[in-house]
Design a binder for these strands. Structure first.
Lengths: 233, 233
DNA sequence: GTCTATAGGCGGATAGAC
DNA sequence: GTCTATCCGCCTATAGAC
């Protein structure tokens, strides 16, 4: 209890605030220069501190990067969870669309953080295992939707060719042992395809191709729901 | 005719060779450091020339980057076209799968060039219009497949909600006026979704999730063919 | 926790000689 | 076309004083 908010010393509070300020400024630089060029010195300069002082908060550039990645995954995961909860009284298919739109909205609002977690890997940087739980949050929202549908008997079993059967069972055992492997396999594909749609929009591949992107995306997301086995009632 | 290969002077030939060497070395650096950190100096150092000499071939770092981007788009487009031709005597649905697999193979063989054209945009760089024709090549291979199917009456009209109808007609008029807008719309979505699958694999999002990626991809690509309106006969 | 100073690099781009 | 020299900037990271 000595570490609870109320009992926190001024020192500890200051540390948290400075840490947050560093991450905020670093996020700003992400936009201007990209993750590959994220520089502790530039962050320090902008914050009016010396670069060496920053090393007391983040022992290296990569640690700062890791913190930003975890924050981004959590921010996206949180947005998806909130959308899921907000659509709690609708059917799974509708919930799917709402969560997809939340993912898209988040990505459009945070393009550089989106690039950080779903864009090209940062050369020379390998994400530590700490990022995995945060990264899994969005995915598990979609698993939850499938589970809802399964409970309500609103989950179809998509077709599955014989050569994919072993892999399907392996994935289902890993991700959602309570769901049919056919549906889990279809979900994984739909998950990647969803981020294909979002990535193309965020990274500008739809420029001069798709104009009414909102309507286009809504329709595509609904088709993905079908592909994942969700039944519109 | 004075610029034809046979009549080319030693000077011109040397220029072409050096230009190619520069681009090759730059592609190597793309892998090591990423596009954001592509450095004319480092390329020159590795080639045993001075940095200033390089400016005679590429007036700036961004021009070198543009050349690499165009090359990458053309390389991918060429791979797709070759796969298309090779499958000329099969049905459109089969041809679709073959081209999808060619795209995936190319991406896995050239991950850094893939990142250059379909990954996060390079901060501070905006691609000139010169890249557009090269970028369109892959897309037009897919349009060609749809056209083949349309001629053979093997093209279904996917459903289209009313609010997407204007956009669908606009896209069809732009991309393929001879094809049904429903199919063109579905194709654009499938196109983005395909690159979502490929990108997730190339960028490592499938690590510890999908093991048998080839079988997984083949099945997903076939489902995309269906979504785009292709009928398996 | 913050500073100065320092080591030992790196970069883009240009001028002017040959 | 290639070189040297140069301008002016940038970076990660550490040591040691306060």
């Amino acid at each position: 209890m000595s570490t609870a908010q109320g009992a926190m010393g001024a020192r500890a509070r200051a540390r948290i605030e400075v840490t947050a300020a560093i991450k905020d400024e670093a996020r700003g630089q992400l936009a201007a220069e990209g993750a590959a060029k994220l520089s502790l010195r530039a962050v320090a300069r902008e914050l009016g501190m010396t670069s060496s002082a920053l090393y007391r908060y983040f022992p290296s550039r990569d640690d700062l990067l890791t913190a930003l990645i975890i924050d981004a995954y959590n921010s996206l995961g949180h947005a998806a969870e909130v959308a899921y909860e907000a659509a709690a009284d609708t059917g799974p298919a509708r919930r799917w669309t709402v969560v997809c739109e939340a993912v898209r909205d988040w990505a459009l609002a945070h393009p550089h953080e989106y690039a950080l977690i779903y864009g090209s890997p940062v050369p020379g940087y390998t994400a530590p295992q700490d990022t995995v739980p945060a990264a899994a949050r969005v995915a598990y929202v979609f698993v939850g939707i499938l589970r809802d549908a399964h409970r309500g008997a609103g989950l179809a079993k998509p077709a599955l060719p014989a050569d994919l059967r072993p892999e399907a069972h392996r994935m289902a055992a890993d991700l959602a042992p309570d769901l049919p492997p056919e549906a889990v396999t279809a979900l994984v594909a739909a998950w990647a395809e969803l981020f294909g749609l979002v990535g193309f929009e965020v990274f500008g591949q739809f420029n001069r191709v798709v104009e009414d992107r909102e309507a286009f995306f809504r329709h595509a997301a609904e088709r993905l729901a079908h592909a994942a086995g969700l039944v519109f009632s």
